[in-house]
């Protein structure tokens, strides 16, 4: 998945060529049934008329997209102007997910590098240690995080105990708490692909760079990073995409004061709003954004490999 640099070779022979169709059939059926059909249904629902209190009426309507992009006032009869509410909600989610991704990269990259440079027989143990906390349910971990961060929690007790701060730092119910929660939730998704890439990296390249008088920084930037870039990109995508739609961390750690994309969409289906077409439209817009990001990164990667 992440080893683009090392496994970029083209498949010249396909051992299972004759049976290919048959072997792929189950995957196609599963993907088609559980991914393509639901997404296609969402697409259709987003263009239907909303039924009061949930459900749809089978009449074509652009109302959902209109609601997303145009503000017609509290009573819906003002002249339309640009609706910033939902764009802001999307922007907030992107910013939160982006911050979480950067945190995860800053911590994840050195961690992955450290693991990959251990003797081969101890690497498995380090990988195991990274994944252990993730055997626990995400909800439990998020709630535990809340216990740790609260004003009278262990973190603040510790900081006050060693005298760094006089009064508790207020972390819970802030954006920072959400970013921290997302970072913590998805950190292994950053560490593992980067580890896989760094493990395959030929360290004599770093030595060669040092022999040619490259500084350590130059070696990192010009030699190591380009070689492990596919792993880094895969890690970033794997952290960013689920963070974008997440609603556990925003609800539990951020206090649900502001909608995120995930909670906005949830509200359309489970909340009072009961506006399925709008929820579907918001999902389609989110899906389009994610697809654009993925396509851009795929193009970037292809370019990199084409050299």
């Amino acid at each position: 998945m992440a080893g683009g640099a090392a496994s970029g070779g083209k498949a010249q022979t396909d051992t299972y060529k004759e049976a290919r169709t048959l072997l792929l059939l189950p995957s196609w059926l599963v993907l088609g049934f559980f991914v393509l059909i639901p997404v296609f249904m969402m697409l259709i629902y987003s263009f239907l008329t909303k039924e009061f209190r949930g459900g749809v009426i089978w009449e074509f309507s652009l109302a959902a997209y209109d609601q997303f992009f145009f503000d017609r006032g509290l009573f819906g009869d003002d002249a339309p102007s640009i609706e910033w509410t939902y764009i802001n909600i999307f922007w907030r989610s992107i910013w939160q997910a982006g911050a979480a991704t950067i945190f995860a990269l800053l911590i994840g990259f050195p961690t992955a590098y450290f693991i990959a440079t251990r003797p081969p027989n101890s690497r498995q143990m380090w990988v195991f240690l990274v994944t252990i906390p993730y055997w626990v349910n995400l909800l439990i971990r998020t709630v535990s995080m809340k216990f740790l961060l609260r004003d009278q929690g262990p973190l603040n007790d510790f900081l006050m105990g060693i005298g760094i701060v006089d009064s508790p730092i207020h972390i819970i119910n802030t954006d920072f708490a959400v970013q921290l929660g997302l970072f913590y939730s998805y950190l292994p998704f950053m560490v593992l692909p980067i580890y896989a890439a760094v493990e395959r990296y030929n360290f004599s390249l770093s030595e060669a760079a040092a022999d040619l008088y490259a500084s350590k920084w130059q070696t990192l930037r010009r030699v190591l990073l380009p070689a492990v870039k596919p792993g880094v990109i895969a890690g970033c995508i794997l952290v960013f995409v689920p963070s974008l739609g997440s609603f556990l961390a925003p609800d539990l750690l951020g206090g649900a004061k502001n909608f995120m994309i995930g909670s906005l969409i949830e509200e359309q289906f489970k909340g009072n709003a009961g506006n399925w077409p709008f929820g579907a439209a918001a999902s389609m817009i989110l899906l389009s954004l994610v697809l654009i990001v993925l396509m851009l990164s795929a193009r970037q990667q292809n370019k990199g490999e084409g050299v």
Partner: peptide, 17 residues
């Protein structure tokens, strides 16, 4: 009613935007 609920939804979204 449906009309008032539409306004209520807006007020709620305003509150949490």
């Amino acid at each position: 009613s449906q009309e008032v609920q539409a306004v209520y939804d807006k007020i709620w979204t305003n509150l949490k935007k």
